[in-house]
Design a binder for these strands. Structure first.
Lengths: 333, 333
DNA sequence: GAAATGAACGCAACCGTTTTTAAGCAAAAG
DNA sequence: CTTTTGCTTAAAAACGGTTGCGTTCATTTC
């Protein structure tokens, strides 16, 4: 009795036209006489008809849905990207299926497959680490994919990011110029290209240009979390570092708070530059100087790129590098 | 040439069975002879067959997808809920379509409709304000809906939250006991039931029990943002308040930082209790005392409730009230 | 006035599953 | 030895649209 879903067929009958015609007016196909269009529209309105997107997806092979793989929505860095993604997605009439992966490659592959099973028209992947498993799935997938905020050494898929080498070099240089000779680099696993290749390289370049020797003991690998930062600071201190460039904002706040709690003055005795310029950098006291990646834009541009790919438009460049800045606040002199 | 999607039909042919049989093994239907099951499985593996979820959705009228309407993923409060939702969703084999609404009722209705068009099996709504528009859509929807972290005065749909009256009363009482007679209440719009009804009531009750008069000038409506907090503090100070209970963590951090920047000592001269116990409360210095709503759990329980509803199991109670605590940190004496 | 043109619209074949119905068949029962 | 019973499996009808192709019919064109 309540199963009553009204279909395109009901509308057709009621309006005395074929379902093809109804389909045309629903889809804005111009080949419909204004009078019939009007009539159909009225019936649609009267019956409160709502096209079934699943049926439509099956018939047209398009779901107007894209999959988004995110390490953790709870992380400001990624959620900022996600917001950019969703905004331009809705702008282009797409919806987002959001799946948390915890950067667990097994989960990622899993999720990727259910996303593909759901026939998403495209896919956006976020995550620092592109495991071989996932890379393999990428390459045999016919579905357009773009990476947001991560780098892909072999450019199989689209991607949007900033020049991490240059960014870290600039940040490191700034720290050196302000007087530190012992600048620490605190990032996630060096096994991840973004850290082990790009950030590390930028760091070394800055050192080299300043005529400073590279000292491995000033490079720290850490989890990206507040508590990790809290726990890591003593080691940083022991290393003799007087400044640090940090790969994640939560981590940086942890370091900062640990410093403060230990009575170390920031920026007088210890300077910090963090990497993501999330709201956290403003909320900290002292506020954190940060590399300013345009997070929202990275997401937005990634989604825009994806729409082009889904639309089979031709792309000028598969990988887009956005500009960055360094926003100076109170954690540097 | 590569359009080659392999369907259930291909598998059936290759395995010399009907598609019905393939469907059975894919869906774990027991009525299949082990031998044939094995054969089919082999063919599936060999052909790398992946069932088309869209077709499945059309035929079964189930999409194993739920819609999630969220004000803003970028907000820690909501993203924490979202994380809980997603985790139990995947636990029950559902995916999440995430849509940001900015608490804009027009956008909400819009999004709700496209979600329903996509035949989601259920819906989770987050947001402080349940506009009449959206409430109306709720009531005529046949799709199960549950609210996460918000209250619904007329309990049309499921919902999961905490006892906001009691929570605010407890917080206010604590502030009064520690010596403040002028406790401010800083929340979002009082037009929203959660503020105007529940929080305000808890606040008044605490006052009454302590024999203090209710003073309207100590109640502040504000946007939930860091900058709003920064801007609001001077007014708070002018009001003579020596403590505040704040409805949102970002807002609270803003207030805290403004106090600090103004040379007001927290908690000596001004105490703060905030409401959501997000990570921010730990990151602030001094750390913020907070009502401890189990954010993740609210999301998780909401999703669990939704699975039951989608499954047509009978529910003991449509609205579930989780327990809360007050986690004392450094912003209270 | 007949033929050609083109706009509107209807027909019907998919899209890839699920699911109901029934058939086939071997073992158990009578 | 025939009938009943109970598994397996096949066939085919949905599910609600999209879309290529063909048809209809009012206009133009010659």
């Amino acid at each position: 009795m309540e199963k009553q879903t009204i279909t395109i067929y009901d509308v057709a009958r009621e309006a005395n036209v074929s379902m093809a015609t109804v389909s045309r007016v629903v889809n804005g196909n111009p080949n419909v006489k204004p009078a019939t269009r009007k009539k159909v529209l009225e019936v649609i309105d009267k019956l409160d008809y709502r096209p079934n997107a699943v049926a439509r997806g099956l018939a047209s092979k398009k779901t107007t849905t894209v999959g988004v793989i995110i390490p953790d929505v709870t992380n400001m860095f990624f959620s900022s990207l996600a917001r950019g993604i969703d905004d331009v997605a809705t702008m282009y009439k797409y919806n987002i299926i959001l799946a948390n992966s915890d950067e667990n490659s097994q989960k990622e592959v899993q999720v990727l497959n259910t996303l593909l099973a759901k026939q998403v028209d495209g896919l956006i992947y976020m995550g620092n680490d592109i495991s071989d498993n996932i890379r393999q799935e990428f390459s045999r997938s016919k579905t357009p994919i773009v990476l947001a905020g991560s780098v892909d050494p072999d450019e199989q898929v689209g991607s949007v990011n900033i020049d991490y080498v240059a960014a870290v070099e600039a940040a490191t240089t700034q720290l050196i110029k302000s007087g530190s000779t012992q600048v620490a680099l605190v990032t996630g696993s060096l096994a991840q290209p973004i850290n082990g290749q790009y950030r590390l390289q930028g760091y070394k370049q800055a050192l080299a240009k300043a005529g400073l020797a590279y000292d491995e003991s000033l490079v720290f690998e850490s989890e990206y979390s507040y508590h990790a930062g809290l726990a890591l600071f003593p080691q940083l201190q022991k290393s003799g570092a007087t400044a640090a460039i940090v790969g994640d904002d939560e981590l940086a706040v942890g370091l900062l708070d640990a410093a403060l709690d230990a009575g170390v003055k920031v920026p007088e005795d210890f300077e910090i530059i963090t990497s993501n310029n999330t709201k956290l950098t403003e909320m900290a006291r002292p506020q954190l100087t940060s590399i300013d990646q345009p997070l929202y834009d990275i997401g937005a541009v990634a989604m825009r790129l994806l729409t082009k790919m889904m639309n089979k438009e031709d792309i000028d460049a598969k990988t887009i590098r956005l500009g960055f800045d360094i926003t100076t606040r109170q954690s540097t002199k």
